[in-house]
Nucleic acid binder design. Structure first.
Lengths: 154, 154
DNA sequence: TTTTTTGCAAAACCTTTGCAGTTGG
DNA sequence: CCAACTGCAAAGGTTTTGCAAAAAA
């Protein structure tokens, strides 16, 4: 079981940085791994394994889904990738970046908004003060109505 | 697709209230439905369909899992039941109660803490002020470290 | 009786795993 | 070369669905 927070994310600016870390850990750079990483760098937000296997809708070569999952597992164990849950369906994978980003998921329009983690500091402080709870929004992000949908709806 | 917030929860004090609402909507009170409801009233927190089908570990008669899921679907559509996601595994079902409760999930000890919804009002206000986001914690609850685990760990 | 609901089996969906064969270093 | 990795097929866990039989009203 992968426990949240067990793999402190590191910072990798580009593919080269990731590749050297992969090699340092005794891993090999295969086609699957290279394409998964390129797709993650090219993606516009957290992305499902299936969409990665489809090469981000054809922009990259198609990959075997089970190999994508294995690649993501390896990269997640190295702190290069993380995944989060934006709805009932498949998990979404993203690079662990610096500054860290957290996500807000709109339950109405399904948009996923990224915000630098420190913009939620006051929210975390409030939870800590009110309930002693140390909230982590990285893995199960905050859901609700985005600013646009909140403006429209009660 | 069941969209969050689509089924505004109502208040049902006891089994009788639920049963009359069920009848009012043209539904029938079957053994499966009665036992699911009794188990939900007896449960100590959000409970998986499988645990309900096991009669809360034997305290109630065993039920057919698919019928439990169908029952929960019906009750959720009526606003009597809701479900939330406390981890990677199965969803957890609970009665929609008054006052409404929200949940805090500890990623370390896995404890699920209920709090009256208004204790998170300041948190919602902070999110609204900082990001214009109208957070709903009912379906994807807040995860992190509970007060006890936060005290132990960095 | 009539319509709803169940039980069972099967499928769907997402993810993991076993294993023989391929490949990177 | 040989340990690491992939492809494929199969299985695992959760939830949904089809359909004939059962039961509620």
């Amino acid at each position: 079981v992968t426990r949240v927070g067990e793999h402190p994310p590191r910072v990798f600016e580009d593919l080269d940085g990731v590749v050297s870390e992969l090699r340092r850990a005794g891993g090999r750079l295969t086609t699957t791994r290279r394409v998964v990483l390129e797709a993650l760098f090219a993606a516009d937000g957290p992305t499902s394994a299936e969409r990665l296997a489809d090469g981000l809708d054809g922009r990259f070569p198609r990959l075997e889904l089970s190999s994508v999952y294995r690649t993501l597992e390896v990269l997640e164990a190295m702190g290069i990738v993380r995944h989060l849950h934006v709805a009932h369906g498949a998990g979404r994978y993203a690079l662990a970046r610096d500054p860290e980003f957290e996500h807000l998921v709109c339950d109405r329009c399904e948009r996923v908004t990224s915000v630098p983690a420190d913009r939620l500091d006051a929210v975390r402080a409030e939870l800590r003060a009110e309930l002693g709870f140390d909230a982590r929004f990285g893995h199960f992000p905050i859901h609700g109505l985005c600013a646009d949908c909140a403006a429209l709806s009660p």
